[in-house]
Write a protein that binds this DNA or RNA. Structure first.
Lengths: 213, 213, 213, 213
DNA sequence: TATGAATGAGCCTTCATTCAT
DNA sequence: AATGAATGAAGGCTCATTCAT
């Protein structure tokens, strides 16, 4: 057994180092067990400390959970923003889908914390989670509106919001499927969603509607 | 002692009556609070009985939760099966979407239990929830396959599964949106999804694919 | 070792029996350790049960403490009321002092809970304790007022309140001394206070005042 | 780096300065929250230092509490001693009462620490508190004995101790009342107690006793 | 069939106290 | 002289679960 000095549990680590460690552990545990199922003890252990340290740095379970959500949201937002610099509409959408799946693929835990228990189990923070999700959806809706205007589409504006919901849901669900098919490359995932969105959107935005006979 | 039979909480109620009462209460509470947040005490109270009765009938919290999921799944399946009797493909899809949104609209609690904490919180039952969800998705995939064959489509079969995932996710997300817009009629909801599915699918199934430049 | 069946810990005792047992234990522990020093575990153990039972019956530590104070206050009030039926003023005062010391002597713990931490350590209930103490003092003040009127005294009414405070304080302190001198009979204690009160009062009520030279 | 010496919290402050600061903070917190309710963290913060400093200077919470009691006792003793230089008995008593109320009025916190939780919460220091209180009472008893001897009184010596207890209790309770009536001047407070003591004592010391019919 | 009484285990939180710098 | 980092131990409270009636 070689000494695995890198993993070794260090003592008296400065806050700037410990705090992220704790956040990471928290994200991991919250993602796996959900808010109620997660225990502060497990989180602390996962960070290599005892509970009082977690409380010293984050105050309470609620605040820790909030910190997780906020971090996850911030990171997703960053990823999408970078992808949003693309000028052309079609390419921008493609870049964003790529960024989204990259985020989901690399930070699976963060993404879980962000989406798990979203509207449910009403804690004092489900509000916060819902807001983060809402932001994403609004971003999509706005993107759709630009597409409509650019393409001279005839789709009524009021329809963009539910459409955005549907697309986001499709993306999340695809991401879930990805978890069980880890060999799929990012591009394949983004491509799938892009196809559904772009081709399907094509008809809609041009005013072609389906109607029951 | 005058008989006050109307108000009085009935005792010695036969099993066939008590069990559904409990299941209803359980669905309600699980839907509102999530698995971990729900307490057996609240469920018992909601059913007008004491905790030992709940245990006598369902054995444990896990088993009770399972019973809820199973019932919800069964009911959704029934609704969809009835809708599946339609012969023509396009109409069958439309009927099924209608049935789905009718189920969601009328039994919101059941639907919540079915979708909440779906893949997460890895308990001994997330497996069961996943299975119920998997069935729905497989149904959709199968439907898609029929569509491909009927239309002489060129879409590869391996793509149908992820596509089904995306569509189911879109449906769930739309249903979520519906919760905040309760005035929307069922048909409008089903129509939205049908448009996305059918028109979007049109291109896909005919082999038209989008590809990055 | 003879079996001490009477002390034996009984199981499944009805609430009407358990609740007072718990209250007794609580009074004992609160009296000995003070509110903050008392632990629910020790109280539960003292009552021969586990903590959840205490919570089932009293809800929280605060409420349990309140229940103790209320019971103690009620019992002291009862004792004093019975003693207040005496017609003649002087005898009534004497009877009340006797009753007071009897209460203190027999229910030392209750009395401690009532007087300990009275104005201090401000919990959400120090208010309640203060009120109980305030009642006693007001009773004394009222008694004094009757004495003034009956005796045609000239003492200003505004002085009665602080005087009552002083007398109550004297009584409590004497009761404290009694704890270390348990052989003293009740009458001797009451007599001591009576002497201070009645003789000292004599001059005051007749308008004889001391003044610095 | 511009010097901001006035606002900046000073470091490397000599022991002679830091220790009283800590003691003051401790007295304040103990007075407000009681022994158990006070936290070392709050005390440290109140003194503008960190907890390890408090431990370095006082060793433990118990010892710190003791130090507070001792300081308070010392200060009260000093005040009373100065007042005891008066030759004539009556005037000496008057001066002492004045000094007592001056102490209570000016150092309310110290006085609280001295009287709060006095005999209760049986920690390792209630002993110490009791001793401080005992000293005060003995002082009063001794004063009473001198009065008896000077006046040729007939009161038995064994009665002086409980009497002293009663008087001290009356004083404390009056002081409590004062807290809620802060506009009262010191002299008025001392006068009230002096009246009760001196006039009431008059009869007692001259052998006039009340007895139940 | 139905329940009041009871508990073991666990969770969130806090606190007095110490170590390494 | 002083501190940020860290912890063992305990306390209040809740919950799933069972027993005796």
């Amino acid at each position: 057994m070689l000494p695995t000095s890198q993993i070794e549990v260090r003592r008296k680590v400065p806050r700037a180092v410990r705090e992220p460690q704790m956040l990471d552990a928290a994200v991991r545990v919250f993602a796996q067990r959900g808010y109620h199922g997660a225990s502060m003890a497990e989180i602390a252990e996962g960070a290599g400390v005892t509970k009082p340290m977690v409380y010293a740095y984050f105050g309470s379970k609620d605040q820790l959970y909030l910190a997780c959500i906020e971090q996850a949201g911030r990171e997703l937002r960053n990823a999408l923003e970078v992808a949003g610099e693309e000028r052309q509409l079609e390419r921008r959408l493609w870049r964003r889908l790529l960024a989204y799946f990259e985020f989901v693929g690399q930070r699976r835990d963060e993404w879980r914390v962000l989406n798990r228990e979203a509207t449910s189990t009403g804690g004092p923070f489900s509000e916060q989670v819902a807001r983060a999700r809402g932001e994403a959806i609004r971003l999509v809706a706005q993107q759709l509106e630009e597409a409509v205007q650019a393409g001279g589409g005839t789709a009524p504006a009021s329809e963009l919001e539910p459409l955005a919901h549907a697309l986001v849901g499709a993306g999340e669900s695809l991401a879930d499927w990805w978890v069980d098919h880890p060999d799929e490359p990012v591009e394949a995932m983004a491509l799938r969603l892009m196809n559904l969105v772009w081709l399907g959107l094509g008809d809609l935005l041009e005013g072609r509607l389906w109607a029951p006979a």
